[in-house]
Design a binder for these strands. Sequence first.
DNA 1: AGCACGCCGACT
DNA 2: GTCGGCGTGCTC
Length: 766
Amino acid sequence: MPESSPIGRSAAEQHDVGATAIARVLLDSPLPQLDRLFDYRIPPRLRALAVPGVRVTVPLRAAGRQASGYLIEVVDEQSFEGVLSELVDVVSAVPVLQPEVYRLIRRAADRAAGTASDLARLVIPTRQVRVEKAWLARRAAEQAAIEEAVSEDAATADAASEGPAAENPAPEGPAAENPAPEGPAAENPAPEGPAPEGPAAEGPAVTAPVVLGYDPAAIDALLDPAAPGPRRRVALTAIPEPAPVPDPDAPSGRRWMPAAARTLAELAAATLARGRSAIVSVPDYRDLENVAAALKVLVPADGVARVDAGQSNPDRYRGFLRALEPRPVIVLGMRTAVAAPAHDLGLIALWDDGDGLHVEPHAPGVHTRDLALLRQEDSGAALVLASHARTTDVQRLVEVGYVGELAPTPARRRRITPTAQLTSADGPAARARIPSTAWRTVAAALDEGPVLVQVARPGYAPRLACADCGETARCTACQGPIAQKRQGATPACQWCGALAVEWRCSRCEGERWRTVGSGSGRTADELGRAFPGARIIVADGEAGVQHVPAGRTLVVATRGAEPVAEGGYRAVLLLDGERMLARESLRVVEDCVRWWCTAAALAAPDAPVMLVGVGGAVASALAMGQPERIAAEELADRRLLRFPPAVRVAAMVGEPEQVARASAEVAALEGVDVLGPVELDEDRVRAIVRFDYARGAEVAETLKVALIRSATAKPRRVDGRPPRRRVPGLRVRFDDHEPFDDPAPGRPAASPARAADAPPSGRMGG
DNA sequence: AGCACGCCGACT
DNA sequence: GTCGGCGTGCTC
């Protein structure tokens, strides 16, 4: 594979002038039948620009005569037996799809019967011509400066040496006066602002690459390319505490965040200090801001490339181009960060792989964790799968010996105390669903500082029922669940938003309803009565809370919306465990444990954490501070049932004949079985393929053939009727998070407030 | 997606 | 013989 750089070696340099240079091109098309490389001759005028990774336009009979694509490689001999066309143009000199990333998306697409171009579109931001021109000009200027330096003093070892520091000095900053080429951290001063905690930094604040709270030998092995695989790929259990990071923008000069964010930043900084790049991928924006804030104290701004979708297009492209430069960088982003370019990748760190946001909603729906695993395998970088609560997927990797385990010192384990739900007592505490022991603990903790109460749902009353017959109240328009947002407010449908003004019970025609259950608002009211004198704050997604004041403060938060309190909460109470566990889903237990452990990690190190109303093996593992055990038990259950992640799955949706044919083809393979089909609507069915990991390649290949067949099949006339529309086609999705859930068509897009009220979903096949 | 190509029925 | 409708399949 030829070395590539943003300027790059040209085809002319790689090949004798006159020799036939062939460009192999990935077309930018979602059609599965076009998902392979096409050969084109490179005309002499384009030889200098035609390097791997650049965007090109090519002639393509049909498809509007021309298509765009990416030049993947330059070869001497064509593999297509026929007359080749010529490249029409090289769109820009920037090699946006480098060979390493192409290999990644190619393999990811092959695993999921998807197309590489679908993944390329996700992973490469849209081109911004102005941004690109500025970047190219700057790079050219830097190149010129280097050449000048070399000619002025050819004997200078720095300038002549290989390696990122010499190749590419920072454009501004005293890089020239700082001849300490020990990696990029050494060549740039830290940004203005307070020095990091710990060992005081003198002179240019180069932060000691320390990862706090973990065995230094284990961290060394992790970042040592010579260490054995399971020491370089680890399931890292995060420190379950909040941690302070210096932040000049914060009122107190410090910003508190889950310690995990700081750990990720420290790992990335340590990698950068070793002269290699790091990728940090987090599920959401809050995590991203935290890691960015932690990185700010550890590395110069120039050392970080942000590549998240939340940015403006120009900013995103700028970050992407920074990642593309041939010198080490920390790439920080969400799902797509794991597929970003990065010079000499030394670390891939993924935070909280169980978070649903790591599932890519766009085709082919590849999970960030799988992309990270593939990238690790190809690049040989270290891999950190960090979380508070291990997923069954990662547990499987641990059990097969592919990844090792890395946990903070045992003293830092977090014990979550199960607390029985009281049944008969009365009073404000009972009405607020708080057992008396927990009430006493919270009352005492409030004297010392803020207390967190986690509840399952936002709003006031999450469910209404008919006052006469008890039937759950449903929207008269769309059958959605009806909830009351505030006390006294008119209830409204959670799906379509219609106000339930002239509501009637669908069973008994009753006209009066009553509330069932408690949302965050109602719980807050009740807690106010149970703890008079405490200030109550509600954080439920709709009302995002950034700052928790000190003093007698009770924070009532829905899972996932918990704010961080300075120094940590003095107690954490997890209230609706039983209800959370009642959700019908393959991954309920994993999800619940993740929500609980994430909230528990916001408590001060020695503060009590209580889980109300949950018993059994889950509660005892949490009581021992060993959520990993739960993952192991869950995985054992899935093995018995032959459910993911013990096996892989692929959902096939489409017309009955197509699904039946594809089903028959995959079912013929060994180690493969098919569940269904079940009817989805009038003309679509769904079947689910289950297969052993070792059969993945064959299953994906077989389904890709079925997809091509479906995409190229012409509409067939039915009963001599005019050409029937061929809308549905066959759709295939691998390794769905909830493979047995109904897609429930017609429902409005889930918002955080509505997520808990997802329409009914049935599990099938077990 | 579009467009050529080929097979078959109906015409000069 | 040859024209043209439409279904099939390919795109370097």
